[in-house]
Amino acid sequence: MKILVSVKRVVDFNVKVRVKADGTGVETANVKMSMNPFDEIAVEEAVRLKEAGVATEIVVVSCGAQACQETLRTALAIGADRAILVETNEELQPLAVAKLLKKVTEKEQPGLVILGKQAIDDDANQTGQMLAALLNWPQATFASKVKISSGKAEVTREVDGGLETLSIKLPAIVTTDLRLNEPRYVTLPNIMKAKKKTLEILKPDALGVDVAPRLTTVKVVEPSKRKAGIKVPDAKALVDKLRNEAKVL
């Protein structure tokens, strides 16, 4: 079975983002960029399924600017076999990405597509579900465990209040939650090997997808800051403040 994994290049999770002075977005120039952490979990899961003999080939895909090639190379170093970049400098919103991924999925015919549940830049949490809708495939989002057997996937999901297990027919869409696995560190030999793997470049026009944004960003502002309060010396002082000043007890 072939597995397709999509990855997104985002501002590294350790970076404290700054809103641009003109209110058009956040500063991304000269900022460290990395693979979206949930996508790293998605790549790792695919590699584990290949190591377990369930998957035969892993194709990793990213949609965005030329620099996404770096992100794809990281995925190849984790263990994906080949990469596809759908290259565009246009702003891509989740619906547009889902449409592009649909075309790539139709071309590649994977048995399973794994995506991160959410990108940590726009925090949208949409693309996997949208791709499932467009393909009319089943979806299992927020996965913490994936078992593949006889044309089905049994997926345990992180839901409010606990865990839920679904059985979905393949081909299907799975999106990852953080406890699914712990991604491996990429080693230098694997980074070298990744440089030799195939990276194909496609264009949205050639795929026949209109990627025009449906949402216009009117402005981006910093949220109002909370003021730091006071330090209290001990438990007695704390309980006194909570009872008599904050009146929350």
Binding site: V11, V19, D121, K219, V220, V221, E222, P223
Partner: peptide, 9 residues
């Protein structure tokens, strides 16, 4: 967006 470090309209 960005973990609540920015608010987009």
């Amino acid at each position: 967006i960005y973990a609540g470090n920015a608010l987009a309209t």
